[in-house]
């Protein structure tokens, strides 16, 4: 077991190095420092201005170790990223680490409720539809799921904002406050939309898992014991479906971020999503590089944690 954990961690570190390399190729080799400077200064910038900008922002050294072994961008990139020394924004010079820290709390206030609510709701709905498998409820449920999956999140957000915020005046259309007494009013609409927009795909997935599980032999045994259908679903099927559910949850976490990227920007929530959108619009390459790295790191950590907890919880998983 320990050997497995160590091996898994080792591979995780390797992947982190791989991600950093991909980022380096993207942000230094494909988009060269000259490109970055030109995006920041405008297409008509003079050569001297570009050189100055590069020198000021630390983009003026050679890229690869074979160009200059001691002082090169590749080394600096790895060195600073791994020490979480993220530097300052290319655009306005604010420390990136500070902006990340500031964005965490507002982001969590919408991603955490979305995550918890949507997990509960979709698993329950999945169970419900699976309970009525091969009936019209099931057919209608699956059709609704496919329907929901065919709508762009843009439409969910615009439609939700229009319907609830503007026509019904239930909640404010946008804005944010960390003060708990008014926060709920601001996050209610984005959370509702966030839950709804991902529901179709999740419910359909969980339904498939549950339906497949109901066909297994041990379910027949439970029925032959005299267990009722509800008991079979809740005690046997749900418990055996935890692994696919867990896997799905880990896989969807980055998508949660995608959803919140748009939600935050739409509803004026000053979180990490808004930070990302801002840096895209301002061509702030360094901030973007840091954001990609930080989220990849979280994702890799999540994957390692799931893999290890599988191995711990379920010894049927072969330790490969």
């Amino acid at each position: 077991m320990l050997a497995y954990i160590l091996r898994r961690l080792g591979y995780g570190v390797g992947v982190v190095f791989g991600v950093l390399f991909v980022l380096f190729v993207l942000f230094f080799q494909i988009a060269t420092p000259d490109d970055i400077a030109r995006r920041a200064l405008g297409e008509k910038a003079r050569a001297q201005d570009i050189e100055d900008w590069k020198a000021n922002n630390g983009y003026d050294r050679p890229l690869w170790p074979w160009q200059d072994f001691r002082d090169n961008q590749l080394f600096t990139h790895y060195h600073s990223m791994l020490r979480f020394d993220f530097g300052r924004s290319d655009v306005d010079g604010t420390p990136i680490a500070r902006r990340l820290r500031e964005g965490v709390a507002p982001s969590l206030t919408i991603t955490v409720p979305i995550f918890v609510l949507s997990l509960l709701l979709t698993v329950l709905l999945g169970l419900f539809v699976a309970f009525f498998r091969e009936t019209y409820i099931d057919i209608a449920g699956v059709f609704l799921c496919v329907l929901g999956m065919s709508v762009s999140i843009l439409l969910y957000i615009i439609g939700g904002q229009f319907l609830i915020g503007k026509l019904l005046h239930w909640f404010p259309i946008s804005g944010f406050d960390l003060d708990p007494s008014v926060m709920l009013r601001f996050i209610a609409l984005p959370v509702m939309i966030g839950v709804l927009s991902a529901a179709g795909g999740d419910v359909r997935f969980y339904r498939t898992v549950f339906v497949e599980e109901t066909g297994r032999d041990y379910v027949r045994t439970a029925r032959a014991k005299g267990a009722g259908e509800l008991r079979v679903m809740l005690r046997h099927v749900l418990r055996n479906s935890l692994i696919p559910i867990l896997t799905r949850v880990v896989v969807t976490i980055p998508f949660l971020f995608v959803g919140s990227l748009l939600l935050e920007n739409f509803f004026g929530i000053p979180g990490l999503g808004s930070l990302t959108v801002d840096s895209i619009q301002q061509n702030d390459f360094r901030t973007l590089r840091v954001i990609v790295f930080v989220f990849s790191l979280m994702f890799i950590g999540g994957q390692i944690a799931t893999d290890i907890s599988y191995a711990a919880v379920d010894s049927r998983v072969r330790l490969e």
């Binding site: 032999d217 041990y218 027949r220 045994t221 046997h236 418990r239 055996n240």
Partner: peptide
């Protein structure tokens, strides 16, 4: 099938 007729997680 005793192998599959028992729930694996209980």
């Amino acid at each position: 099938e005793p192998m599959t007729s028992l729930s694996p997680v209980v």
